[in-house]
Design a protein around this nucleic acid. Structure first.
Lengths: 210, 210, 210, 210
DNA sequence: GATGAATGAGATTTCATTCAT
DNA sequence: CATGAATGAAATCTCATTCAT
């Protein structure tokens, strides 16, 4: 059996294990058994538990980012405006996290598992935030507004948006009854924030004093 | 030294340890040492690692919920409307999470540490969501709108809002440069979502087709 | 409260605890709690766990030996012959072990708990064996037989008898249905061995070759 | 080194350790060291201390029962009557307990080490008691006696006999001077009880009044 | 006389990791 | 290429025992 296939089997088993039990609680024994190979082989191919987890994160991160990028940038016909791109990106995000719950769980949990992994997740977030920032900029142009958001504001908004999306993904995945469709979830988020963003693009700011 | 004092010392040390390393990676040895006591005493007072972590969660949860409730409901003069209450609640939330970063980290991490702990966090989220839901309802009335949100929509919105707030709190805490003040962070979130909520209260809904 | 009373309470609690859980598994915490006193007091009065267990053994040993001696030697009218004495001694033995099951359990278990305790039990067995040997000697005389058992034979017989009695005591105590009365148990043992002894006194010996 | 060999080494070391110190006082560290392996290997093969002790009991129990059964049932020429079978069984019993003192010690001690183990010993005793009961029944027939013992009487007698044998085995093993041969010990027991049994088979019963 | 507070030492058990074949 | 066999290190937890008051 070629190495690539074996390696994918191991990663599949590892993703499943880490998703179910978390990084620390998942044992290399169980992962090797689930992959149908012996433990030394796992070590031969993937060096250590930390490297194995990192490989899982990288694979799932790449898959998720590709899905979101594909959703936002592709499609037929080519999306006309930034709003549509954001909408499609969100749909792709929720569709992907729903289709690969274990992968999403690994990414979600990796955030709280200490330094080497949190950095990887931070990188992923930066990728997505960059994409969102780009779209917001284009949306401002679309709205005939040449006044750009201050960097600082955009950063905060993007984090809020990504945070909200993450929360909704977990929440949607964990529902046992009436699981909402990815589009429904995406619409909830658009309802929640798009109008506010539109107002900000126009230069309006919320202020506590009235 | 009286029991209560010792117990607080232990909880302080445990919160610090769990915040830094997570539940599994934090060792009872280290916690005991940081608390300045011997391990058996920790076990005598707090029964087990699981119970110790639960005690940490409960204490920090209670403190956080009290802070938010106090922020939203109190103040002089009594806040006139729901918008102000939400604003003050958010300020209190970000102020608290900034003032007690370890406590917040424990709560944030507990969510991904398996069954007994996730339930506790779910309970906390439910408490806060309930409060937010109440405020949104009153905001709708304030806006002269007798049409209530559908239950399902509110649930999604509240989750998105809480998720966004959580993300922002982590993000604000993790910045090393130019840490935003709690009020700035709260303003970011209000900007992000309040206008959209206002539109929804008026019955408007975002839709992908234009 | 006078020291003697306190000390008896402790011994009572200890006997109960050791009987239920064995020497190692019984904890000083539990014993102190059951006795209704604090742990340091137990240590003040009884020095250590080993000493406490030894004290339990000594007390129960003394009570059991006194009961057997009293049964064999006393009564009204004074028993006429050794057979009657043996019979009464056995009755007293089984009555005592049935009346104080915890005490008997402590003695029975002490035999398998390592050096310092096994010696104490060996001492008790020696006391009882001596008594039995005496009675057998008198029985031989009663039977008009001046030929004495060889020392070696008596030692073996006495051990067999005591072993059989111990086994029967445990067995009788552990029955949940149809608990036999002490007299029934004693009669079983007399049936079992007295005739054989009688034959031996007369000089007969069993031999494998017919 | 193949698994089976290692496993036997471990059981040997465990039997020795448990025999010397008892179940609780024997430590897994010491057992592993005596077996010449590391602790994790012991756990890998034998799961837990409880399982290890149980495995020891089972092995020694099987060996002892096989020895007794073989002694009672085999031999050349085929033993003619029940008396000879009992005699040979006893010889085999005392020979086995003398040849494997540690194994016998483990079995003897297991009886007082709490529920899961006591049950195992009870099972062993039941096996042997059943065998003895069978032989007694056949002995009654051999003696031309069609009157059977009452169930209850037999049960008591068998317990007394097994108890006596156990005691004698311990006693014989613990002698430092003049260790009696298995046959001598067996003869002691036959002398002690066989005549009495013979009388009972004939219907005679001992009674306290005369 | 009596105890609340505290601990040193050691128990069982698990896990990531590596040879020898 | 692949694995059965093996372990160093460390985790959680318990217990007999002692001060300071």
């Amino acid at each position: 059996m070629p190495r690539e296939v074996r390696e994918r089997q191991m990663l599949d088993a590892a993703v499943a294990g880490f998703a179910r039990h978390g990084y620390q609680a998942a044992s290399m024994d169980d992962i090797a058994e689930e992959a149908g190979v012996s433990k030394p082989l796992v070590y031969l191919y993937l060096k250590s538990k930390e490297d194995l987890f990192t490989a899982c994160i990288r694979r799932e991160r790449a898959a998720l980012v590709a899905a979101v990028r594909g959703g936002a940038g592709g499609g037929e016909p080519q999306p006309a405006d930034a709003e549509q791109q954001l909408w499609r990106g969100l749909c792709a995000f929720f569709a992907h996290t729903a289709a690969r719950p274990d992968g999403w769980s690994v990414l979600h949990r990796a955030d709280t598992q200490g330094e080497p992994f949190a950095r990887e997740i931070a990188g992923m977030r930066a990728e997505i935030t960059e994409l969102v920032t780009l779209l917001l900029g284009r949306a401002a142009v679309d709205a005939g507004c040449d006044e750009k958001f201050a960097e600082r504001e955009v950063s905060g908004l993007a984090h809020a948006m990504v945070g909200a999306a993450e929360s909704l993904a977990v929440w949607a995945n964990s529902r046992t009854d009436a699981v909402p469709s990815p589009k429904e979830t995406a619409a909830t988020l658009m309802n929640f924030c798009w109008t506010g963003m539109g107002q900000m693009i126009k230069g309006a700011r919320w202020s506590p004093h009235r």
